[in-house]
């Protein structure tokens, strides 16, 4: 997961992402790839609590160097696509778990990355909120986004178009 997300480089082997070998990149190049090519969705949401929903969504664009007006526009659209446009000025503490995770998805989407990487996105949610989040993933998938989703939940896993089972660090089973 850390390697896929370019948070870490592999100690051995190669990782080719979007046609580029990322195994030998330095910290700043990895930061750029994380910013531009990967959208993270974490189990614990990982939103910044002092910022409002829209400011959280804007943050990757800040690091990308996008102008303030364009940032606001794109963040608004991303929040709209997860159905939270009317709550954009609330801080994470004022949102439910499912809503927070949707803000996190909007944040992951806002840079239009080729890959969305979701690490147990439903793990901290009740089943209703979990379903909401999965519906959004389905919708995004239909629109053509690549989503890598890591889960323990067999029901969630079923929804993928391709499933890879990893056990004790080895690929155990692969199928579609």
């Amino acid at each position: 997961m850390n390697t896929l997300g370019c948070l870490d480089v592999p100690t051995s082997g190669k990782y080719i992402l979007d046609g580029e070998d990322v195994s030998k990149k330095n910290d700043d190049e990895l930061a750029y790839i994380r910013n531009n090519k990967i959208g993270f969705v974490f189990q614990g949401f990982n939103l910044l609590h002092k910022l409002t929903a829209i400011e959280n969504v804007e943050l990757p664009l800040v690091y990308l160097g996008v102008s303030a007006r364009e940032r606001r526009e794109r963040a608004h659209k991303a929040l709209e696509s997860v159905g939270l446009a009317e709550r954009e000025n609330h801080t994470p503490n004022e949102l439910s778990g499912g809503q927070q995770q949707r803000v996190a998805i909007a944040r992951a989407l806002v840079t239009n990355p080729p890959i969305l990487l979701a690490d147990e996105p439903t793990g901290n949610l009740d089943s209703k909120a979990g379903k909401e989040v999965m519906d959004i993933f389905q919708e995004l998938h239909q629109k053509g986004n690549t989503i890598i989703l890591i889960t323990h939940d067999a029901d969630v896993a079923k929804q993928g178009s391709r499933t890879v089972r990893i056990q004790d660090g080895k690929i155990f089973e692969e199928g579609s």
Binding site: D27, A31, R34, F40, L59, R107
Partner: peptide
């Protein structure tokens, strides 16, 4: 620390 981690995960460079 956690805030810094989040910022880095979504693309903040060391210099940022």
């Amino acid at each position: 620390t956690r805030e810094i981690g989040i910022r880095k995960a979504i693309g903040a460079k060391k210099s940022d």
